[in-house]
């Protein structure tokens, strides 16, 4: 999940009876699966929670370009390079769709970017892991985009209209991402023993960080209960993680790769796999800023923003000049 552990300001979920009439009418619209649109009344906590969630999601798309950008110039063929470039460009687009959705809630893009750059807002923990070999491009597409799809498909039905529509656009593009990753894995696994070992190594390193993407268990979380009631979250973290494991295990098997979990086994009774939890201490440490690449990622992001300032200023100056020229020409013609 690209938005992990979003707080809602709730200490418990109110029942319909406890709500003031306006809030009750709002909740009833959500219960009827009506979409909430930007200028309509909404509880302040719904608005601020959505800004946090959509903002975190947008930041993840943008920062998520960095681990893959690392391999664009080193892709093994021109075709792979073009594909990876297109994939990374899509992620930039995803970030923009989501920033637009967040802006309809009354926050500015600059405010969101400032919060990302100053570390006040988070992005997904997954992007703080390094991409060491070409096989990592396979593992990232297959597992990371695969986990993102798991989370984003249900969010197409989310209650906030602009967020839901952004998710529809994003989901249309994500399946290309996952397939190109799996395609890299298939090639590597059908290659030399060294190549297959690289693929296995990439799976070993990305398996648990991918499971962390869904966030820690939220079965008892009041924030999740509130988000579920508002339909800005559709499944619990554990449900999504289970689905992801069940879907991925056969895919690994097809590749002839081993999931790095000795406890992994089919559980007939629940109709899904039993599996080991990731190391949640590691997760909290990464979220706190101490992952292997946190500094590098945020540093690269801030540098790109600062280095691009002259270009943005140039565009602004050009637009102002052209506007002045147009008014002057108009006055002269009158």
């Amino acid at each position: 999940m690209y938005a992990q552990m979003v707080k809602t300001d709730a200490d418990r979920v109110k029942t319909l009876d406890e709500m003031a009439p306006q809030e009750r009418a709002f909740q009833e619209r959500i219960d009827r699966n009506e979409k909430i649109e930007p200028k309509e009344w909404m509880p302040e906590a719904y608005r601020t929670t959505l800004i946090r969630q959509i903002g975190q999601h947008a930041h993840s798309e943008i920062v998520g370009q960095l681990p893959e950008g690392n391999w664009i110039t080193r892709a093994p063929t021109l075709e792979r390079k073009a594909i990876l470039l297109a994939k990374v460009q899509d992620e930039a687009g995803h970030g923009l769709y989501l920033y637009c959705a967040a802006e309809t809630l009354g926050v500015s893009r600059d405010e969101l970017l400032e919060k990302l750059h100053s570390g006040k807002m988070k992005y997904s923990s997954i992007f703080n892991y390094p991409t060491l070999t070409w096989a990592d491009m396979g593992a990232v597409g297959w597992l990371v985009d695969g986990a993102a799809i798991m989370n984003q498909v249900p969010l197409q039905r989310t209650s906030y209209g602009p967020y839901s529509r952004a998710m529809v656009r994003i989901c249309k593009e994500e399946s290309f991402h996952q397939r190109q990753g799996y395609d890299i894995m298939m090639k590597m696994c059908a290659g030399t023993a060294d190549q297959k070992a690289m693929a296995q190594d990439a799976l070993n390193r990305f398996w648990y960080p991918s499971l962390m993407m869904f966030g820690p268990s939220d079965a008892d979380s009041v924030h999740s209960a509130q988000s579920l009631a508002w339909k800005i979250k559709v499944d619990t973290n554990d449900e999504l993680r289970q689905k992801f494991v069940d879907q991925t295990v056969p895919q690994a098997k097809y590749l002839g790769l081993t999931i790095p979990d000795a406890e992994l086994k089919w559980n007939e009774e629940k109709g899904g796999y039993d599996f080991s939890q990731p190391d949640w201490d590691e997760f909290f440490d990464v979220i706190a800023g101490n992952g292997p690449c946190n500094k590098e990622r945020l540093g690269a992001r801030v540098k790109a923003w600062d280095d691009g300032a002259w270009y943005r200023d140039g565009l602004t100056a050009h637009a102002q000049k052209a506007a002045t020229r147009r008014t002057t020409a108009k006055i002269a013609a009158e």
């Binding site: 297109a86 460009q89 899509d90 687009g93 923009l96 769709y97 637009c100 802006e103 893009r109 529509r165 952004a166 656009r169 565009l315 602004t316 050009h318 637009a319 052209a322 506007a323």
Partner: peptide
């Protein structure tokens, strides 16, 4: 959808990249 741009010309170029890939 929507996007930010300094002028109409850049808005069209950005829209090309963001919405018609």
């Amino acid at each position: 959808g929507s996007l930010h741009a300094p002028d109409a010309e850049m808005a069209i170029l950005n829209a090309r990249d963001v919405y018609t890939r």
